[in-house]
Every structure is written in structure tokens, then in C-alpha cells.
Design a protein around this nucleic acid. Sequence first.
DNA 1: CTGAAAGCGCTTACAG
DNA 2: CTGAAAGCGCTTACAG
Lengths: 351, 351
Amino acid sequence: MVKRVTIKDLAANMGVSSGTVHRALNGKPGVGDELRERILETAREFGYRPNYVASSLKRKTLRIVAAFPGSTEQNRYYYTYVWQGFRDCMEELQDYNLQVIEIPYYNTMNVQGHELTAVLERYNHEIDGLITVGHAHDERGEQAIRQFIQQGIPVMLTCDDLHDSGRMGCVQANYELTGRMVAELLSSQLPENSSVLIGAGDIMVPSHYGIIQGFDAYIKENEISLKTVKVHGYKDEEEISMRMREYLNSDPSIRAIYSVNARGSVMIGKLVKEMGLAGKLRVIGSDLFDENAANMKAGILNNIIYKNPYQQAYLATRRLLDYLIKGEKPIEDVKYVESVVLFNSNLSMYL
Amino acid sequence: MVKRVTIKDLAANMGVSSGTVHRALNGKPGVGDELRERILETAREFGYRPNYVASSLKRKTLRIVAAFPGSTEQNRYYYTYVWQGFRDCMEELQDYNLQVIEIPYYNTMNVQGHELTAVLERYNHEIDGLITVGHAHDERGEQAIRQFIQQGIPVMLTCDDLHDSGRMGCVQANYELTGRMVAELLSSQLPENSSVLIGAGDIMVPSHYGIIQGFDAYIKENEISLKTVKVHGYKDEEEISMRMREYLNSDPSIRAIYSVNARGSVMIGKLVKEMGLAGKLRVIGSDLFDENAANMKAGILNNIIYKNPYQQAYLATRRLLDYLIKGEKPIEDVKYVESVVLFNSNLSMYL
DNA sequence: CTGAAAGCGCTTACAG
DNA sequence: CTGAAAGCGCTTACAG
């Protein structure tokens, strides 16, 4: 192995001090343009590669803010794993001289925004990076995210994106492909001219309607004789459950049920159990958590669509830190994490 | 954030030198038993956590040997991704002062063993870790692996295990659960009393027969009316292809074909194409590489079982390095990487 | 068995 | 704009 080229080597070679080399390489002020160019040129020539392990040792602590919904109530289905992915990544890179500020927030609307603005004040705007969720239709939250970006703080989003906000990137599931995949799975399992009853969630939520769009597109493009019966809605479970029950009672062509979200999956689990439909229909739920896992083991759910929130948050955090520690900007703007079909047989591997 | 506790803090507190604290914490010789105990106690009390970033800076370079089949010919289907997983992990942790020695070997039998023994000689036994594959029934290879272990060199295996060799761990696919999952998938797609034609591979290869065992067990345990027609064999493709063709011509109950390995998947792809059976049978291949991907896009393969060799090698490497850098022993002896069912719809996410 | 010193490859004040 | 020095938290010889 060739000896590693260091800043000292470059400095000696050029007859300047190592401080000057450092300033030149890192774009810091205080080096003449001509000298800076020559140093950069020499670094390239010598194949210099910075040692980030060493550089983290002396530089000031990087302060990272993470803001996600607190994992209570309905949010625990998903955000428990988002927090875990974030923490595991921070833990792994802890020795790189990092400080974490965790902001769990507890009401979806506006609270995210208020908390974020508050933390910016509290730390006197000395924050090096933010990772959070781009909730659609949360004005206050979006405004706060833009505030960070305007301060020059790099912002990484996960789960949901805000395309034109200026964030450095987003790591999320590919909702359209997820919907296509479910359509492909069901069309391989159901006889011709069957119907699928879909708990389609909120038409304003990207993670819900994206899936539906993909599902419909797959069926149309492949000219499949699968019909869909969609029940929209999100918050009022009682009412949605009632409407689903009516469809199940009145439409004998329904051979499968699918919920695009976690909350709806718990509901259809209950419904299938109450109506004694287990094993008579194909039933597909979304997201992995206790209730869904139990229903799968009991034969009430046949498949679970797992969007891997842990991995989404882990990778988003990783990208933010790679940028802050190494200056590496992610190649793609948006990174999609694979959605996976779980079966009863391999459920245990994901728990 | 509380200031990090360092070796210096501990030394000052105890009135000893930082060298002594270092020796005590790392189990190095040259500290009295009584003093060592007191230092360890104080470290616990103060919540001391070593900074591995700092420790890598001055310590001697860790020399890691990686030995996998070279990714040519049939091996490129799988081992290309094994090498990639290994390299990406090494790349990520490069700043921790590591040296890599790559040993690709080109004939499966015995060559692995010869190469490994040779490298041990060449570096005068000064090797800090080995990552390789536990090929079953390769006497010479197994012998060499044991040789490393006897020298006290930690050995991590991937893809295939050698249980009683004393290796520190193995990261691999769970073949039995993979077989069960395929049985579950097919039984949800095929009408009653169908048969599945299975390219069952080599009965001596764990990654082949493990899948078959899982498949059969699922069918038996769940009393499913699925029959299997198995064609064993591995090397002689012509002959296997011929036998499969005969079954397909003579047994009309066959509604699906499945190959447990990469090589067989290419073969069944050809067969289905030649016999004009695309779309008439469910066809499931194994492993992700150009030929399989192309066949999937063309509608010849319906699903691919992806065992994620990249992730297997990445995680195995990671575990070895976590041990060498941080002294963290993996909790589980064997770590299983999830096998995933790929669909045409989400294939693009894995390429 | 223990200490004092040098140094890994950087970054950060400070002085000029 | 540039240099010299100190130091991040460790590890590694060397001396006693």
C-alpha cells in the first residue's frame, strides 16, 4: 500500500504552511487566488484525499436538528421506525464530533413549524443541519423549513418531500411503483373480473394518492380485468369501516381488500375478522407494526407492503452527515427506498 | 451537551498517566491488576466512551484479507455484487486506517485454500481479519480458514457458513425461509392441484437444498395441494434443460417453473422462450443480473427471488470491521439477510 | 509495572 | 494574505 498523501506532504512540497494548504483545499478565505489554484492543482496531481476522521477531531461540533412526529398514538405505527433509523445513523457516526437535538412534535398541523422556529432562536441560528418530514399542506411547517434553508442550513427531508423548497434532498418510498407492485401481485392472484376494495386514504396525502395512481396505471397499461372499489377518507374510521362493510355485503365480485396506509390496515384487519372473511379474500395491509404482524400470523392479512421507514430515515440522515462531514452532495435529488412485499413465511425476518 | 469524557480526564482524576489508562482500558499488558480494576471502575462511573475516530489515527494499520470467487463466467451472476458490497463497506470506513488485500480465485475447488495459505505466508502471518465464503465440501478451503482461525485471526463468512470452524460469524440468506416464501407465493397464484417444475440445483449445496426443504415444508405444514416435480443437477445444463423440456411436454398439470439458482434461471428463461410458454406459466427465477432482468422485462420471468448478495457482503464486512475497530462482537452468530420477491413493477428500483 | 513524550492528520485561533 | 503553534483523543515507542 502506498503511503497516504497528507496536507503536510503537500505543504512541504510547495514550501507553504499546512494552514495555508488547509484553507486552500476547503475554500476558506485567506489565500491568494493564484496560490489556491496551484495548491488545488498539486493536491490533484498527488492524489490527495482528505482524512475526515482526523478532521473531525479538532473542528467545531456539528449541531444536527431532527424533527419528526412523536411516536405515540397512530404515529407509532410509522414514526417509531423513523426515529430509530435516525438514531442508529447518528450513533454510528457519533465519534465524528456531532451534537443531536431531537424535536418530537405532537400535533400534525403547525406544531412542527413552531418548534422548528423556536429551536432556531434558541441556538442563535447556529445549527449545521436539519432533518425532518415535508408534510404536505402544513403551511407553518413548510415556512419554517424554508427559514432554515434561507439561513444556509442544509435540510434533508424524509417520508414526504417539498420539491421546490430548496432542500438538499429527500429519501422516501416510491409510492407510484408501490401501487403498481400491489396491482401486479393481486392480478396474479385473483380470477378474471374480480374487484378489489381499496381503503384509499386521503386524496390530499401524497403517500396515499401516489399509490392509488400507480395501482390504476398498472391495470390500465396492462389491460387487466381488475376492477377497484375505492373508499376515501382517513380520520373517521367508524364511517370508513361502515362503508367498506356495505360494499363487502353487497358486491360479490370483491375478492381482495387493500389499505394504502397503516391506520386503514388495522381497520380492515378488524373488519375481516368480524365478518369472518379470513382466508376467503386476499387481504393486503400497509406498514409493519404489532397489530399488522399479529393479524398476519393469524391469517387475517395475507401480505404486508413494507415501505421501510427505518431505512428511509437512516439513509436521509446518512446523506445529510456525508454532506456535513465530507462535503459530499448526494448525486440524486430524490432517493427512493424499495417497498417490499412481506409474506407470512418471512415476516419473522423483519420483526 | 455534556463534554465528552476522555482518557485524559480519567488520568487526571486518578493521578496516573494517560498511557496507563489506555493500557488498562484496552487489556494491554503493563498495568497492575489492582490499578487496572480501579481504572475500569472509574471509567464506568464517569461514563467513558472511547473515541474510535481518534484511536484509529495513531494505531497501526489494520490489514484485511477478502477472498471471493472472481466475478467471471457464471460467478458474475452473484459474486460481482459480493465484491461490491465488500468494497463499498471498506471504502466507507477507509479513514479508519485500513489496508485491503483482495484475493479473487478462479476455480472453485481448492484454489481458495491455496490462495489463502499463500497470503498468510506472504504477510508473515500479520493479518488482522479475513472475510470469505464457506464453500461446503471444499476441503482445502476449509482447512485454510481453520488455519487463520488458529492464528487468532478473526474470520467472517458470508453467503455460506462453516458452523463449527470457530469463525466469528456469518451473514447469509435464510434459505429455508426463502423456499417457504416461494411456496407461499405460488400457492396464492396457482389453481388447486397444480404442479411446479423446480430446477432444484445440487443436493450437496446448502443454498440449493435449503430452499427446497423450506418449499416442501411449507406445502406440507399448510396442507396445500401443490405438487412438485424436481430436476436435480447443476453443471450439465444441456441435460437438465432436456429433462425439464420433457416434463413440460408430458405433464399438463405443471403451471409454474422455479429455479433455485442463478444459472438455472438463465436456463429456464431460454426454455420458456423457446417453447413459447411466456405468460402461460408462472415463472420464477433467482438472483438479479442482466439476463434475468431482461427476461423479466420481456415477460418471460414473472418474479425474481433476490437474496441481496451485496447486502450480505456489506454487513459481513461491517461486522468484521466493527470488531476490529471498536471491539464490538456481533450479538448473533449468524445474521440472515432478507430475501425479497421482485416484480416487474419495482424491478427498476433494484437495478 | 508506570510515566513522559512524540505524533497520527487535521483545524483553529493568534500574530504579523 | 500567510505562517507558526497548539491541540483534538488517542496509541506507540522509549526510558526508568
